[in-house]
Write a protein that binds this DNA or RNA. Structure first.
Lengths: 270, 270
DNA sequence: CCCTCTACTCGAACAGTGATCCATATCGAA
DNA sequence: TTCGATATGGATCACTGTTCGAGTAGAGGG
């Protein structure tokens, strides 16, 4: 992972060069509604740096889950006090903005290839899901946030490039991009359950497999006269191959998108 | 949120009689993993009844939003103390289970008509979205919950009937049902923002329209050399006709589902 | 009539949360 | 040295979900 030790955070002006790993990427000015404290001048040492806080937060989230992230716990992990964090990130909300953008940066987007645009869109979808599975809390963090950080901007630009290369009309490209993100988030939202790390269900917590069995058994036990479909199809609910389910979803989406675009072009052209 | 340890506060075994609220409809046995205290015998007056608590909670949520629902605030609205609520609903989590199922009951599902199955699936989708807009917090409440209450069961049964009537193979019908719900949730999740009621943004809170304008203006301000698509398509991001966006989404989904089903049938048949 | 047992109520308290105050410390510049 | 911006963190506030345990109401049995 590119730790991207950008010193002095992202302030205005300062056309700094990006670190190794993300070579040559241009600096994006921060959007005006960012809920972070604005610091002027970068001429001090950073004993605790905003970036270190974000990294520690992600480490803590990966290990213990979303509910375990409190400002106090994070401060302790950094060997400092909770109040200090507020000077750097403004609020827990501001911290989560930064966390989200950093994780969005993990989504890899291929260079646009017009001949393969449908397969490339599916690849983007798979990559986004992979990040959401690696950090099961990220979908929940993204709720209520409109990501406009540097990484989100770059992801949108590159995804739009693929869609435009595929010949989608402007509106269709933008909506396809936005709706695809929503669709994937909807899927991974129930896939990741409460968003805690995979390990450590101490109590009588059922595994996903056990839960599916319970649900299926329950459905089978319903009165068949009133619920013929649920009783008859109960076995299908046990299917928990989420990879296959996700593959079906993006096949449906990309195929439907391509056809909607084709019919939109047909309407416009004739 | 807090201790996920053991939400099942009271788990002594006692046969439960259903309350007097749901008359006429066929009784569905409660699923075994329900996190509610089980009460035996109804031979007392109900001064505060579980149903009244759920109704009050929904009223409070509709008025003030998800963040405003605390057990204390709800108790005050009912003229009682917070501790009393716990005897009836076990935990806030159990209460939200009940709230969710009650709201699921608001989703109307038409009787299956084989000739119009695609249109009927879209109607189900529109109805689900309508409920999610009427109660903007409901998508957030559903996160991490697998709804298995009476209303959820009936909704699944009726939706599956429509899909089966449309000729979808068993697996396709079940997955179509589940994926459609996820897809709609993903869409309404960003549509409803933080899930607060439509009114009352006291501060410098931008309206959705203003927010879209700000975002569009920001995108237009990016360096065009590096972000040609974002700059060129910025205007498209201002389009906030969510009805049209949603219509496009379900067109994509239902069309893609129908074609996936057709090709699945073709593979199976040949 | 009283007595007991169960269903039910609720003030008080506990541990934890995000956030803020404010006295203190550190250091570059003047 | 002095000054002021940068940075720290203990104490504290209002609030959360939840539990405890003392208390109340009312039907059934004697």
């Amino acid at each position: 992972m590119s730790t991207e030790t950008s010193p002095a955070a992202a302030d205005r002006a300062a056309p700094q060069q990006a670190g190794p790993g993300t070579a040559g990427l241009p600096e994006v000015p921060p959007p005006p509604w960012q809920r972070l404290p604005e610091r002027s001048s970068r001429r001090r040492r950073e004993p605790i740096s905003r970036d270190a806080i974000v990294d520690a937060a992600i480490a803590l989230l990966d290990r213990d889950g979303l509910d375990a992230l409190s400002m106090r716990a994070l401060a302790e992990q950094l060997g400092t006090g909770a109040a200090s964090l507020y000077w750097h990130v403004g609020s827990k909300d501001g911290l989560l903005d930064l966390v989200l953008d950093k994780l969005i940066g993990e989504v890899a987007i291929p260079d646009a290839d017009p001949a393969r645009w449908q397969e490339q869109v599916k690849e983007v979808a798979r990559n986004q899901r992979a990040v959401s599975l690696r950090h099961p809390y990220v979908v929940r963090v993204s709720i209520g946030r409109i990501p406009m950080g540097q990484n989100a901007i770059r992801l949108s630009e590159r995804t739009l490039a693929i869609m435009r290369a595929g010949g989608l009309p402007p509106r269709m490209a933008v909506q396809g991009h936005l709706l695809l993100i929503s669709t994937i988030n909807g899927f991974t939202l129930d896939e990741t359950g409460v968003g805690d790390p995979p390990g450590a269900q101490p109590d009588g917590a059922p595994s996903p497999q056990e839960a599916a069995e319970m649900a299926s058994a329950y459905l089978r036990s319903l009165p068949p006269a009133h619920f013929p479909n649920l009783v008859g199809l109960a076995a299908e609910f046990t299917l928990v191959d989420d990879d296959a389910r996700f593959g079906l979803l993006i096949d449906i989406f990309v195929d439907g998108l391509a056809r909607a675009a084709a019919s939109a072009r047909a309407r416009a052209g004739g």
